[in-house]
Simulated scan of single mutants.
Amino acid sequence: MEKKLAILQIDSVLGDINANLQKISSMIDSIEDKEVRMAIFCEYGTTGYSLDLNAVAEEIPGKTTAFLEELALRKNIWISGGMIEKGDNNKPYNSSIMISPTQGLRAKYRKVHPFSFEKDQINYGDSEVIVDTELGKVAMTICYDFIFPEYIRSLALKGAQIVLNSTFWFADEISGPAGWES
């Protein structure tokens, strides 16, 4: 059996974690293809890009990861996506989580390369994360991390077969992804 990934294109409700978890749940419930073994939602998927990141920051593990663990178990599918993690010095982390359908929360990754205005708003991560899954060794990255070829190369050299890049890029029709010019 071929194994596939499902990319969940979520239009997050700004700052409403419960509404966004319901959207994610509904999208995963709608997957009918039995070959889909992992569902991935975007950076800031549980919150949208809130102007007050501390107001929506959560502990990992916590309420959101518990909800997603139950969903992964019920649907027998891996789940990965982005959330805001409570941090130090009144600055949260931009994090992604990886949840196994049989083992629950397997990993969290904190964005290593902050983009533009994030530099003043979030704490930076400082470690690579590669998770052994039934699809192979999966490296976790977030958004701007993907722009650093040596960082991605280092993940491959450490055995990553798949590199997930959870991102919340937004674009306009003229300039492409917003903020590229900064």
Rank of each mutant, 00 (worst) to 15 (best):
A39I: 07
A39P: 13
A39N: 13
I40L: 15
F41Y: 15
C42T: 02
C42V: 05
E43S: 14
E43D: 12
E43T: 11
G45M: 10
T46M: 13
T47E: 05
T47V: 07
T47G: 03
T47F: 11
G48N: 06
S50W: 10
S50C: 13
L51Q: 13
L51A: 09
L51H: 12
D52Y: 11
L53Y: 10
L53A: 04
L53N: 02
N54F: 09
N54T: 08
N54H: 08
A55E: 12
A55W: 07
V56P: 01
A57K: 06
A57N: 07
E58K: 11
E59N: 11
E59G: 02
P61Q: 02
P61I: 00
G62I: 05
K63I: 03
T64G: 06
T64H: 08
T65G: 00
A66R: 05
F67S: 01
F67D: 00
F67G: 00
F67M: 01
F67N: 00
E69C: 08
E70Y: 00
L71P: 08
L71W: 08
L71K: 08
A72P: 10
A72H: 12
A72D: 06
R74E: 12
N76K: 14
I77R: 13
I77N: 10
W78D: 01
W78I: 05
I79H: 06
S80F: 07
S80P: 03
G81I: 05
G81H: 08
G82N: 07
M83E: 07
I84T: 10
I84N: 01
E85F: 01
K86V: 04
G87E: 03
N89F: 14
N89V: 09
N90G: 12
N90K: 15
K91I: 09
P92Q: 05
P92R: 06
P92T: 03
Y93F: 15
S96W: 06
I97Y: 04
M98A: 08
M98R: 03
I99S: 06
S100L: 09
P101Q: 10
P101H: 09
T102P: 01
Q103N: 14
Q103T: 04
L105S: 06
R106M: 15
R106V: 02
A107V: 02
A107F: 10
A107Y: 12
R110L: 01
R110K: 15
K111T: 04
K111M: 13
V112K: 14
H113D: 05
H113T: 10
H113P: 00
P114H: 09
P114S: 12
F117K: 10
E118L: 10
K119W: 06
K119V: 11
D120Q: 14
Q121H: 07
Q121Y: 09
Q121K: 15
I122G: 02
I122F: 14
I122V: 15
N123G: 02
